[in-house]
């Protein structure tokens, strides 16, 4: 489902003396449907960077990133956009929203992009917001004023509204209390059960061991980092 072959990346900072920073070197691994793989490694090892490369948010210098047979590195922008709409979901560490849009609509958006009616999309979004313990009185407000934990739960709700076949999760349980952490991990288990391929970054070891089948230590691939 998700396969990386000899993927490498470096940043070139033109306006800072053209400094070249190699971040990832020759990463290869695969994630099958129904599997959850954790990316581990010390802070700064490049876990989030790699995740963004898999999402197409960062450019990959060399190698192949195959998701459902589409090589992201060579793909046209519209192919990536279609992929992100139909196949690949991504829950980043921070909630990024269009200002002024109510929470319910933020969460319903992925389904609306797929052509689902407003009514049905909002129904599904409500179910998830309930599950993640976001009180109904907040649904008509923009999440930009919510607490860190609430924002993260809205972020997760948005990521799980549609049953993506492939999901990328960056620290999904950070800033959550035990009860909500449990909800999120259940959502991940449900996704696995229906055959989604998941890559996650989990600070929390307990969470990692509960949902992940394998771990990949990214610091092995980071130039200048001792494993």
């Amino acid at each position: 489902m998700i396969e990386l072959k000899h993927v490498s990346k470096a940043f070139t900072l033109h306006n800072q003396g053209s400094a070249v920073i190699e971040v990832i070197n020759d990463v290869s691994f695969a994630v099958a449907a129904g599997e959850c793989v954790a990316l581990t490694g010390a802070s700064g090892a490049g876990k989030s960077t790699l995740m963004r490369m898999i999402y197409g948010n960062y450019l990959t210098q060399s190698g192949q990133i195959l998701i459902d047979d589409l090589d992201l590195v060579q793909a046209e922008p519209r192919e990536i956009i279609t992929l992100r709409r139909d196949v690949l979901g991504y829950v980043s560490q921070f909630l990024r929203v269009v200002p002024r849009v109510p929470t319910l609509d933020v969460v319903a958006e992925p389904l609306r992009l797929l052509g689902v009616s407003a009514v049905d999309a909002q129904r599904r979004a409500s179910a998830l917001l309930h599950q993640l313990n976001i009180p109904e009185r907040l649904w008509s407000l923009s999440p930009t004023t919510f607490s860190g934990g609430e924002q993260q739960r809205v972020n997760i709700a948005r990521g799980f509204t549609y049953n993506f076949p492939a999901i990328l999760l960056d620290e999904p349980t950070a800033s959550l209390d035990a009860a909500n952490r449990d909800v999120v991990l259940s959502l991940i288990e449900d996704a696995k059960a229906r055959g989604a391929a998941i890559i996650g970054i989990f600070h929390d070891e307990a969470a990692r061991s509960r949902v992940c089948d394998r771990e990949i230590d990214i610091s092995r691939f980071t130039p200048g980092m001792v494993a």
């Binding site: 940043f11 070139t12 033109h14 963004r52 197409g56 948010n57 960062y58 450019l59 922008p77 990536i80 956009i81």
Partner: peptide
């Protein structure tokens, strides 16, 4: 390129 890619990882 993709909007978010050009804005988050500009090359030029």
């Amino acid at each position: 390129g993709l909007t978010d890619q050009v804005l988050d990882d500009p090359q030029h």
